[in-house]
Amino acid sequence: MECSWPGNNQLMQLYHDKEWCVSTTDDQYIFEMLTLEGAQAGLSWSIVLAKREEYQKAFRNFDISYCSTLTDKDLMNLQEQYNVIKHFAKLQSVRSNAQAIIKIQKEFESLSLFLWRYVDFKPIINHWNSEEQIPAQTPLSTQISKDLKKRGFKFVGPVTMYSFLQAIGMVDDHLTSCPYHTSNKERKI
């Protein structure tokens, strides 16, 4: 039995099957997930996924350097030209988060190395039997949220950070009965 949260939504199903809880060390992809998870605050993930291609166009596939230089005028133009979530503070967070990432890359070599050290460079593999067991936040997501906020990141609350940890595969929260859970994928090999 697969996780039920994607429902019959094709984009959600594809995201669940190909990306969710899959470990990555690609800073550009990590930045994309950070942006999309922050954009989700107060909305459903299906709305964000439906706008993902527009985000990719607007932010040049989440080019960190490009995004760090956007002015408020640039962001207003993107807000008008692309079908992104129109919340201006969320759009401004793309710029401020890109700027914060550049500082982390200078200090730690990459955003990936900065984040993955929280889990000793090994994903947390949970063993949930039902989706009701999956927490909305954890002490780890709370700690990362605090640390990122201190470094100038925006829209990185503990709940958003937990979803983000799932998105970049630092946490595997597939149900144990789901074929995409780490232990089930390992059995197929």
Rank of each mutant, 00 (worst) to 15 (best):
43 L>S: 14
13 Q>P: 08
46 S>G: 15
9 N>S: 04
42 G>I: 13
97 N>P: 15
55 Y>Q: 15
98 A>T: 08
52 R>Q: 08
57 K>M: 10
170 M>D: 01
145 S>L: 01
83 N>M: 12
103 K>P: 12
183 S>R: 06
122 K>S: 06
66 Y>N: 12
159 V>R: 06
61 N>Q: 04
108 F>V: 03
113 L>C: 15
85 I>V: 11
59 F>V: 13
79 Q>W: 04
133 Q>A: 12
10 Q>D: 11
148 L>P: 12
144 I>Q: 01
13 Q>C: 10
78 L>K: 10
82 Y>V: 00
42 G>E: 01
118 Y>S: 05
182 T>W: 05
135 P>E: 00
76 M>F: 11
149 K>S: 14
114 F>P: 01
28 Q>P: 10
50 A>E: 08
26 D>Y: 11
135 P>L: 00
106 K>H: 13
14 L>I: 06
145 S>F: 08
169 G>D: 14
101 I>E: 12
159 V>E: 00
5 W>A: 02
127 H>E: 08
73 K>E: 15
180 Y>I: 12
148 L>C: 15
146 K>H: 15
45 W>D: 07
7 G>Q: 06
116 W>T: 02
184 N>I: 00
35 T>A: 10
181 H>S: 01
137 Q>T: 01
92 Q>E: 07
93 S>G: 13
143 Q>E: 08
169 G>I: 10
162 Y>H: 09
70 L>R: 04
1 M>R: 08
21 C>N: 09
163 S>E: 13
116 W>N: 02
154 K>D: 03
95 R>M: 03
120 D>Q: 05
20 W>P: 05
76 M>D: 09
142 T>L: 08
161 M>I: 05
108 F>P: 01
91 L>G: 01
47 I>E: 10
188 K>F: 14
64 I>Y: 06
2 E>C: 12
91 L>R: 03
10 Q>E: 15
163 S>D: 05
84 V>S: 02
107 E>P: 09
64 I>E: 01
